[in-house]
Simulated assay, not measured.
Amino acid sequence: MLKKTLAALAIGTALLGAGQAMAADYALDIKGQHAFVNFKVGHLGYSYIYGSFKEFDGSFSYDSKNPEASKINVTLKTESVDTNNAERDKHIRSGDFLNVSKNPTATFESTSVKSTGEGMADVTGNLTLNGVTKPVVVAAKFVGEGDDPWGGYRAGFEGTTTIKMKDFNIEKDLGPASQEVELIISFEGVRK
Rank of each mutant, 00 (worst) to 15 (best):
M1T: 00
T5D: 12
A7R: 09
L9E: 11
A10N: 15
L15G: 15
L16S: 15
L16Y: 14
G17A: 04
M22E: 14
M22L: 13
M22Q: 15
A23K: 11
A23W: 08
A23L: 08
A24P: 05
D25N: 06
Y26D: 04
Y26K: 02
A27S: 13
A27P: 00
L28I: 05
L28V: 00
D29Q: 07
K31R: 11
Q33G: 12
Q33D: 13
A35H: 00
F36K: 14
L44P: 10
L44D: 15
G45S: 07
S47E: 08
I49P: 04
Y50I: 07
G51K: 04
F53T: 01
F53R: 03
F53S: 04
K54M: 10
E55F: 00
F56Q: 10
S59V: 05
Y62G: 14
D63V: 00
S64G: 02
E68Y: 01
A69F: 04
S70F: 04
S70P: 02
I72N: 15
I72W: 10
I72P: 13
N73S: 15
V74F: 04
L76A: 11
K77G: 06
E79Y: 02
T83H: 06
T83S: 11
E87Y: 02
R88T: 07
R88W: 03
K90L: 12
H91Q: 14
H91V: 06
H91F: 08
I92D: 01
R93M: 08
R93A: 11
S94A: 09
G95H: 05
L98F: 12
L98C: 10
L98E: 13
S101M: 11
S101Y: 08
P104G: 03
A106G: 10
S110E: 08
S110H: 05
S110G: 14
T111D: 01
T111L: 01
T111F: 00
S112F: 06
K114L: 07
G119Y: 06
G119T: 05
M120Y: 12
M120C: 10
A121R: 01
A121I: 05
D122E: 05
V123L: 13
V123I: 10
T124R: 12
T124C: 10
G125S: 08
N126R: 02
N126T: 02
L127F: 09
T128R: 05
G131V: 08
G131C: 01
V132Q: 14
V136S: 14
A139T: 08
A140E: 10
A140P: 07
A140I: 06
A140S: 14
K141I: 07
F142D: 05
V143A: 12
E145W: 08
G146L: 12
D148R: 10
W150Y: 14
W150K: 13
G152Q: 12
R154S: 04
A155H: 00
G156Q: 07
G156L: 05
E158V: 03
T160Q: 03
T160K: 06
T160V: 03
T160I: 04
T160M: 06
T161K: 12
K164C: 09
M165H: 03
M165E: 09
M165Q: 12
K166P: 00
N169F: 00
N169T: 02
L174W: 10
P176M: 11
A177V: 00
A177Q: 06
Q179K: 15
E180F: 01
E182R: 09
L183Q: 03
L183P: 04
S186E: 12
S186D: 11
F187R: 11
E188R: 07
G189M: 06
R191V: 01
R191T: 01
